[in-house]
């Protein structure tokens, strides 16, 4: 990176460190922090959508739909998520390929499971065998997002389901009295009003989601944990210009600080959002705000 980095052995400590921390591998490490933030940014809305539809189907008056929604919530929450993560990614991948195989290669006669191999026709491969590495990485990332969203969607569904029931009945009855159809009541009254009840649960969920991101490591994504382990390990002089001992403790300390900062920061932001949403609501928080303003 810097011009003086050509001979690291001859440098004093500070300069050595500045060179060491700017090697190509370290940029991959820094990039992995962005990956974590990226997966959070993508997963949160997708999980919220899953949660919303999960809650809607759990509320449905059609029995099978309601069972489906409730079953989804119950099963995902009863099992350690790490088991889901290890299981879902392979299952999803093979599931998608199987579907595409059925659609794209109807004439294929070979069995899909040949011994240990899972073989679909080349056109059905995801991503296509011809795709560049970037596409493969994006696909792996996408699978991780869907897996995360499925798991967290179940928790979000539970929160939203509870929040929808917490909206005061009188508000819905008033809407009916004004002649709104059930659909209008749902979209114009229930949905806007439920957020204030859902937010405490959802913000808790967001904190948990942040803390779940190190598990990306188990999904084969080269995330912060992967690089901390790789970079922190002892390095001998034969294979690197920057040999060092076992530094894994310090790398993981950096990760701890990163996560503490993330959770601390989002707590601040979420509590502001809560104050905003509480405005004018028929809750103790809203009442306190009203009194505060009056006084």
């Amino acid at each position: 990176m810097f011009s003086y980095c050509t001979d690291p052995d001859a440098l004093d400590r500070l300069r050595w460190l500045s060179c060491y921390l700017t090697t190509g591998v370290h940029f991959s490490f820094y990039l992995s922090f962005l990956k974590v933030i990226g997966i959070l940014a993508v997963t949160a809305p997708v999980a919220l959508a899953f949660g919303f539809f999960g809650a809607m189907s759990a509320r449905s008056s059609i029995a099978p739909v309601s069972w489906l929604g409730k079953g989804y919530i119950a099963v995902v929450r009863g099992v350690p998520d790490i088991a889901f993560f290890l299981f879902f990614v392979i299952a999803l991948d093979q599931g998608f390929e199987w579907l595409r195989h059925q659609a794209l290669c109807p004439d294929w006669t070979d069995p899909i499971r040949q011994g240990n191999d899972f073989l679909v026709c080349p056109q059905a491969k995801l991503p296509l065998g011809t795709a560049p590495q970037a596409v493969h990485q994006t696909y792996a990332f996408g699978l991780a997002v869907v897996t995360f969203a499925l798991v967290f969607g179940a928790f979000a569904a539970n929160v939203i389901f509870g929040a929808m029931r917490a909206v005061p009945k009188a508000q819905l009855e008033t809407a009916e009295a004004y002649g709104m159809s059930p659909r209008q009541t749902f979209w114009r009254i229930l949905v806007p009003q439920m957020w204030v009840y859902a937010l405490p649960g959802l913000s808790n969920l967001w904190q948990v989601l942040i803390k779940a991101t190190p598990l990306l490591f188990l999904l084969g994504i080269e995330d912060v944990v992967y690089w901390a382990r790789e970079l922190g390990g002892t390095k001998t002089a034969r294979f690197t210009a920057y040999p060092h001992g076992d530094w894994r403790m310090w790398y993981f300390l950096a990760l701890l600080v990163f996560y503490l900062f993330m959770t601390w920061g989002s707590e601040k932001i979420l509590s502001r959002l809560m104050t905003r949403l509480t405005r004018g609501q028929a809750t103790t928080g809203g009442e306190a705000q009203r009194r505060g303003a009056a006084a």
Binding site: G24, V25, H136, E230, T240, Y242
Partner: peptide
């Protein structure tokens, strides 16, 4: 696509540039 571990020098490892 050639799969490797990248953690077993001198067979395979990740160099300073990240390759």
């Amino acid at each position: 696509r050639m799969g490797t571990e990248g953690a077993y020098p001198p067979y395979n490892f990740i160099n300073d540039a990240g390759d």
